[in-house]
Amino acid sequence: MKVCNHKGLSVVIMLRDEHCPPHAHVEAGTWSARFRFSFWHNGVELWDVVPLSRRPSLAVLEGLRQSLQQPAHLRRARGIWWRKLQTACLDNQLWDWQSNEVVVVKRVVSTTNMIGSACYEPESNKTLLSLIGTQESVEIEL
Protein backbone atom coordinates (compact mmCIF):
# COMPACT_ATOMS: atom_id res chain seq x y z
CA MET A 1 0.00 0.00 0.00
CA LYS A 2 1.41 3.38 -1.02
CA VAL A 3 2.64 5.70 1.73
CA CYS A 4 4.01 8.57 -0.37
CA ASN A 5 5.86 9.57 -3.54
CA HIS A 6 9.22 11.23 -4.01
CA LYS A 7 10.34 12.35 -7.47
CA GLY A 8 8.26 9.72 -9.19
CA LEU A 9 9.22 6.88 -6.84
CA SER A 10 6.59 5.27 -4.60
CA VAL A 11 7.32 4.41 -0.98
CA VAL A 12 5.12 1.45 -0.06
CA ILE A 13 4.34 -0.97 2.75
CA MET A 14 4.08 -4.48 1.35
CA LEU A 15 1.05 -6.36 2.58
CA ARG A 16 2.25 -9.93 1.94
CA ASP A 17 4.87 -11.88 3.83
CA GLU A 18 6.09 -8.87 5.84
CA HIS A 19 8.33 -9.20 8.86
CA CYS A 20 9.92 -7.09 11.58
CA PRO A 21 11.45 -4.55 11.86
CA PRO A 22 8.87 -2.11 10.47
CA HIS A 23 10.00 -0.95 7.04
CA ALA A 24 8.89 0.53 3.74
CA HIS A 25 9.96 -0.47 0.22
CA VAL A 26 10.92 1.47 -2.88
CA GLU A 27 11.03 -0.51 -6.13
CA ALA A 28 12.74 1.37 -8.95
CA GLY A 29 13.14 -1.29 -11.63
CA THR A 30 16.93 -1.61 -11.60
CA TRP A 31 17.23 -1.31 -7.81
CA SER A 32 15.11 -1.53 -4.68
CA ALA A 33 15.58 -0.08 -1.22
CA ARG A 34 14.12 -0.58 2.23
CA PHE A 35 13.79 2.07 4.93
CA ARG A 36 13.27 1.18 8.61
CA PHE A 37 10.93 3.14 10.83
CA SER A 38 9.87 2.71 14.42
CA PHE A 39 6.89 2.82 16.73
CA TRP A 40 8.88 4.40 19.57
CA HIS A 41 10.73 7.27 17.83
CA ASN A 42 10.31 9.36 14.68
CA GLY A 43 13.57 8.50 12.95
CA VAL A 44 13.81 6.74 9.58
CA GLU A 45 16.94 5.06 8.29
CA LEU A 46 18.05 3.39 5.09
CA TRP A 47 18.15 -0.35 5.71
CA ASP A 48 19.49 -1.67 2.43
CA VAL A 49 19.66 -1.29 -1.35
CA VAL A 50 19.87 -4.17 -3.85
CA PRO A 51 21.70 -4.72 -6.00
CA LEU A 52 24.43 -2.58 -4.57
CA SER A 53 25.95 -2.15 -8.04
CA ARG A 54 22.80 -0.27 -9.19
CA ARG A 55 22.51 1.87 -6.06
CA PRO A 56 21.08 5.33 -6.82
CA SER A 57 22.77 8.52 -5.68
CA LEU A 58 22.89 9.38 -2.00
CA ALA A 59 20.73 12.42 -2.78
CA VAL A 60 17.93 10.18 -4.11
CA LEU A 61 18.11 7.86 -1.10
CA GLU A 62 18.21 10.78 1.33
CA GLY A 63 15.24 12.40 -0.40
CA LEU A 64 13.26 9.18 -0.04
CA ARG A 65 14.25 8.89 3.62
CA GLN A 66 13.22 12.47 4.34
CA SER A 67 9.94 12.04 2.51
CA LEU A 68 9.03 8.99 4.60
CA GLN A 69 10.12 10.80 7.77
CA GLN A 70 7.60 13.61 7.24
CA PRO A 71 5.11 13.32 10.12
CA ALA A 72 2.04 12.63 7.96
CA HIS A 73 3.86 10.01 5.88
CA LEU A 74 5.37 8.28 8.89
CA ARG A 75 2.01 8.20 10.60
CA ARG A 76 0.45 6.67 7.47
CA ALA A 77 3.22 4.04 7.27
CA ARG A 78 2.70 3.09 10.92
CA GLY A 79 -1.06 2.89 10.45
CA ILE A 80 -0.75 0.60 7.41
CA TRP A 81 1.81 -1.62 9.18
CA TRP A 82 -0.25 -1.84 12.38
CA ARG A 83 -3.58 -2.56 10.68
CA LYS A 84 -2.07 -5.33 8.56
CA LEU A 85 0.42 -6.95 10.95
CA GLN A 86 -0.91 -5.98 14.39
CA THR A 87 2.64 -5.62 15.75
CA ALA A 88 4.92 -2.72 16.59
CA CYS A 89 7.86 -5.18 16.60
CA LEU A 90 8.78 -4.22 20.16
CA ASP A 91 7.72 -7.31 22.13
CA ASN A 92 10.50 -8.88 24.22
CA GLN A 93 12.85 -5.93 23.76
CA LEU A 94 14.17 -3.86 26.67
CA TRP A 95 12.81 -0.44 27.61
CA ASP A 96 15.13 1.84 29.60
CA TRP A 97 13.17 4.16 31.91
CA GLN A 98 16.17 6.43 32.45
CA SER A 99 16.91 7.14 28.77
CA ASN A 100 13.33 6.58 27.52
CA GLU A 101 14.41 4.27 24.74
CA VAL A 102 14.54 0.69 23.54
CA VAL A 103 18.02 -0.57 24.32
CA VAL A 104 20.19 -3.46 23.26
CA VAL A 105 22.20 -4.60 26.25
CA LYS A 106 23.86 -7.82 27.27
CA ARG A 107 22.50 -7.65 30.79
CA VAL A 108 19.42 -6.23 32.42
CA VAL A 109 20.06 -3.19 34.62
CA SER A 110 17.87 -1.59 37.26
CA THR A 111 16.43 0.95 34.82
CA THR A 112 15.24 -1.58 32.23
CA ASN A 113 12.13 -3.71 31.89
CA MET A 114 11.29 -6.13 29.13
CA ILE A 115 8.46 -5.06 26.87
CA GLY A 116 5.71 -7.65 27.15
CA SER A 117 3.56 -6.13 24.45
CA ALA A 118 3.24 -2.96 22.42
CA CYS A 119 0.12 -1.48 20.89
CA TYR A 120 -0.06 1.35 18.34
CA GLU A 121 -3.07 3.66 18.27
CA PRO A 122 -3.27 5.13 14.76
CA GLU A 123 -5.95 7.68 15.68
CA SER A 124 -3.81 9.32 18.37
CA ASN A 125 -0.41 8.35 16.89
CA LYS A 126 0.69 6.82 20.20
CA THR A 127 2.42 3.61 21.16
CA LEU A 128 1.55 1.94 24.46
CA LEU A 129 4.09 -0.41 26.05
CA SER A 130 3.17 -2.98 28.69
CA LEU A 131 6.30 -3.83 30.65
CA ILE A 132 7.02 -7.10 32.42
CA GLY A 133 7.64 -6.84 36.14
CA THR A 134 5.92 -3.51 36.70
CA GLN A 135 2.38 -2.23 36.95
CA GLU A 136 3.38 0.92 35.07
CA SER A 137 3.08 1.24 31.33
CA VAL A 138 4.72 3.64 28.90
CA GLU A 139 2.80 5.90 26.56
CA ILE A 140 4.85 7.31 23.68
CA GLU A 141 3.45 10.27 21.77
CA LEU A 142 4.86 10.20 18.25
Rank of each mutant, 00 (worst) to 15 (best):
3 V>C: 11
9 L>S: 04
10 S>Y: 06
11 V>N: 05
14 M>W: 03
17 D>H: 14
19 H>Y: 10
21 P>W: 02
23 H>S: 08
24 A>T: 05
24 A>I: 01
25 H>M: 14
25 H>F: 10
26 V>H: 04
30 T>L: 11
31 W>Y: 04
32 S>H: 12
32 S>I: 06
32 S>T: 09
34 R>C: 09
35 F>M: 09
35 F>D: 04
36 R>W: 08
37 F>N: 02
37 F>W: 09
37 F>M: 08
39 F>Y: 11
41 H>E: 12
43 G>H: 14
43 G>D: 13
44 V>C: 06
44 V>D: 06
45 E>L: 09
45 E>P: 00
46 L>P: 03
46 L>Y: 04
48 D>T: 10
49 V>D: 01
49 V>C: 06
50 V>A: 12
50 V>P: 00
51 P>V: 08
52 L>H: 07
54 R>E: 15
54 R>I: 03
55 R>M: 11
56 P>Q: 03
58 L>W: 09
60 V>C: 08
62 E>F: 07
63 G>A: 07
64 L>P: 00
65 R>W: 08
66 Q>R: 15
67 S>T: 15
70 Q>G: 11
73 H>W: 09
75 R>A: 11
76 R>L: 14
77 A>I: 10
79 G>R: 14
79 G>W: 05
81 W>V: 07
83 R>W: 09
84 K>S: 10
84 K>F: 08
86 Q>M: 07
91 D>Y: 00
92 N>F: 11
92 N>Q: 13
94 L>N: 00
96 D>V: 02
99 S>K: 12
100 N>D: 11
100 N>T: 13
105 V>K: 13
107 R>A: 07
107 R>Y: 08
108 V>E: 14
109 V>F: 05
110 S>Q: 12
111 T>Q: 00
113 N>S: 08
113 N>Y: 04
113 N>D: 07
115 I>D: 00
115 I>L: 01
116 G>T: 01
116 G>R: 15
117 S>Y: 07
120 Y>T: 06
120 Y>P: 02
125 N>I: 05
125 N>F: 07
129 L>M: 08
131 L>M: 03
131 L>G: 03
132 I>F: 04
132 I>Y: 03
132 I>A: 04
133 G>M: 01
135 Q>C: 00
135 Q>A: 13
135 Q>G: 10
136 E>G: 05
137 S>H: 13
138 V>T: 04
138 V>W: 02
139 E>V: 14
140 I>R: 08
140 I>Y: 06
140 I>S: 03
141 E>S: 14
141 E>I: 12
